[in-house]
């Protein structure tokens, strides 16, 4: 085992940032560790020191604030799906969390780690993209919020440098009314597997429930990075959430993607053939949920 010699448990964000600075690039942030332990074995990373976010005060919290839902970087996928607010109002995140490996992975793995690991179809990431999440990134000098979508350089490559920076929080706008989210995942077996395709959607309806105001459709793995079906999103905006519009949007989404084949999971053709079905399914469920919160008289 290629273990680093040190493993630090700072209790404050400042302490963590300071540790990274002190180690001058030889230390690395660790959260759940379920990906890093694999990287360590493969020799993909060789840090001299791990700096854990596990015991930094406050980072294990999920806060439901007035405008935002704020998730600490030590929050696990199991914490997310078990959180009453997330479970009830942010289906896409709860369900994406349920899709990560299996429960004993979800009990360790974090949304923050998922984002920094930067895989193009990471379940948590897809949900975060659909939710228009922002990520708080801290280093010894700065703290800044960046949109999650801006953080991907390529497969496995993040703009967050975990030898210098740490993610402390992830947040997304709070919204309960006229909004619905949904998740769909296709795999070679129902659990414990990487996705053939996954899809996270977030739909905002107007007050009447008759018009889609805005939508976010995230799809993976159809590009080297988490992909948003922006043409499909634009098509839907301003239109009614009818079955036919959803069907058309799903077709448009297929047209925008350029998936690759994977001999173990599925071919490009299979992915192209099933994208409309999964986008349609996710959009319909999200719309249904959004309508569920619309109070129509009579």
């Amino acid at each position: 085992m290629n273990s680093p010699a040190k493993y630090l448990f700072p209790t404050t964000i400042e302490e963590a940032a300071q540790a990274l600075a002190d180690w001058k690039g030889e230390a690395r942030i660790i959260a759940g560790g379920t990906d890093l332990m694999l990287d360590l074995q493969k020799g993909k990373i060789q840090p001299h020191c791990f700096v854990s976010v596990d015991r930094i005060h406050g980072l294990d919290q999920i806060r439901v604030e007035d405008d935002f839902i704020v998730i600490g970087s030590a929050v696990t996928f199991a914490n997310l799906k078990d959180h009453p607010y997330i479970d009830q109002h942010v289906h896409v995140l709860a369900d994406a969390g349920r899709s990560v490996g299996s429960l004993s992975i979800q009990n360790a793995a974090t949304l923050a780690g998922n984002i920094v690991n930067a895989m193009p179809a990471a379940d948590g990431v897809m949900a975060a993209v659909a939710l228009e999440a922002e990520v708080e990134i801290v280093d010894i000098e700065h703290t800044e919020w960046k949109p999650v979508e801006s953080l991907f350089k390529g497969p496995g490559l993040s703009n967050v440098d975990p030898t210098r920076q740490l993610v402390t929080h992830i947040r997304f706008p709070r919204c309960e009314d006229h909004r619905g989210t949904a998740w769909y995942r296709l795999g070679r077996r129902p659990s414990l597997t990487l996705p053939i395709l996954n899809c996270a959607v977030n739909v905002f309806l107007d007050d009447s429930g008759g018009i889609i105001q805005r939508t976010r459709i995230a799809l993976g793995p159809v590009a080297p990075r988490p992909f948003r079906a922006q043409e499909a999103e634009r098509f839907l905006e301003g239109r009614s959430p009818s079955a036919e519009n959803i069907r058309q949007a799903a077709e448009i989404a297929r047209g925008e993607t350029d998936p690759r084949g994977n001999v173990l999971r599925a071919s490009r053709n299979y992915r192209l053939a099933t994208i409309p079905a999964i986008v349609e399914n996710a959009l319909s469920n999200a719309v249904e949920r959004a309508l569920g919160f619309v109070t129509t008289p009579g």
Binding site: I30, G33, T34, M37, F50, S104, A108
Partner: peptide
């Protein structure tokens, strides 16, 4: 809570 002990660094 159940975890994969193979992916859990002992320090955790």
């Amino acid at each position: 809570e159940s975890v994969r002990s193979c992916l859990t660094p002992i320090s955790k």
